[in-house]
Nucleic acid binder design. Structure first.
Lengths: 228, 228
DNA sequence: AATATTCGATAGTAATGCTATTATATTTGC
DNA sequence: GCAAATATAATAGCATTACTATCGAATATT
């Protein structure tokens, strides 16, 4: 696993960046430190000027990598979904039984990221928190449609499509495989947010994870050989 | 219904505004026109200066009603949830059968707002769109916890609690009533967003509304007299 | 008629979100 | 080992944003 991950490069739409941040030390620092800063101060307060000061570099240098902070957020979240997709494919690949496969998929995408895999400059634990707190801001904009056309959300869409297909493999008659898949992904982020800030709005907590909730939700919705 | 609605005043936490916008003509115009503008240009591009120009009033006058545009968003969304709560209570009040009651509740909170009830200066159709596109920005901030303590989200929380209780009335053994309730509310906003911008991520559309999806999801999760 | 209250107008400030230019490193290709 | 290409740093500048403060005029209240 480690070796595989060492050589993993997540393919991100080239239009998202001006210059590939993976291509230089400064680019990597921008990604690395922006994750820490956005996590600490939130996306709204985060600016390229502050990032420049933080990494001892210049604001204008950062603009050579990303047009603006919105694009940086698109980059970071794309990276996260690509990373998650990789884990999903890797972990479910060898599972033949559709139910078991879907169960594993739910587990992968709904669990909290607990360990930084240390194979890159990206801190996945913090990035997971950024995705929970900031992802929806990347698409809740007036530019969604044009950015969608440009392919800025392909990785996320592919991930939903993969889960949707797994749902179909379990129950070909189910009417809402895509809605269910998007509910799992987006709903999981939401439940994790609720655990942190609105405990009264969720039943999930440390010992009853979102994974249990979504597993229950999904397998009660699908007719399987054993229960239908 | 009309008469009841005429006299309806949605009780919004006084800390959200500096001066009650319902208390003056200017206040009402601020609310009224901000809904149109946020809908047109999105919350990010919307500013008090632009609103001032739009309503032929002064920026500083708007600040006498709301500290900043974030508070205005909190006000608008609170108003929306209060309005929805009213409809929920009104429509489910007389229903005795728990399943039927829950079914009705799902219908109320997941449907798209299609008509402006015309009893106030608030355009509910546009406000519904604002909630779909902007609501999560009101809580995905670094200030959530303190604002939650101040009671800025009470209406929304009460709405989730109401639905959660209805779920419990249908199946007292179900382990995730609050998570399910929050999934219905938040997931519904998300499905409506997907219908508008990411059709491949949802199975819902004009003739298969989110209501059908969530009804299916909920009643498959709950053990009821008839199916369990 | 006196007095609050409200509102409009103007001004000002620090920060944001950039862009442009120039100078200095650093890498690389020969 | 040197020149050319490229990358980065430093500085400046600009329009806009998100306010705050002050003052006077209009309006409502008693």
């Amino acid at each position: 696993m480690e070796q595989l991950l060492q050589s993993l490069k997540i393919g991100i739409n080239e239009k998202i960046y001006v210059k590939d941040p993976q291509s230089s030390a400064l680019g990597k620092r921008i990604v690395e430190e922006s994750i820490l800063m956005i996590n600490d101060m939130g996306f709204e307060s985060f600016t390229f000027r502050k990032l420049g000061v933080h990494i001892g570099s210049n604001e204008s240098s950062i603009y050579r990598y990303f047009e603006n902070k919105h694009k940086l957020l698109l980059y970071l979240t794309s990276w996260y979904w690509g990373w998650l997709e990789y884990q999903l494919v890797f972990s479910t690949n060898s599972i033949a039984d559709p139910k078991e496969k879907l169960q594993k998929a739910i587990e992968i995408v709904t669990r909290a990221t607990k360990e930084d895999s240390a194979f890159s400059h990206v801190n996945e634990v913090l990035l997971n928190k950024i995705v929970i707190n900031e992802y929806s801001k990347s698409y809740l904009t007036k530019e969604v449609d044009s950015e969608n056309k440009e392919g800025y959300f392909v990785i996320y869409k592919r991930l939903v499509a993969r889960i949707s297909k797994m749902v179909e493999m379990v129950d070909g008659d189910y009417k809402f495989p895509s809605s269910l898949a998007s509910t799992i992904l987006e709903g999981s982020l939401h439940q994790h947010f609720l655990i942190d800030h609105f405990t009264s709005l969720t039943d999930c907590h440390e010992h009853l994870a979102p994974t249990e909730y979504f597993t229950d939700l999904v397998f009660n919705s699908l007719k399987t050989d054993s229960n239908g």
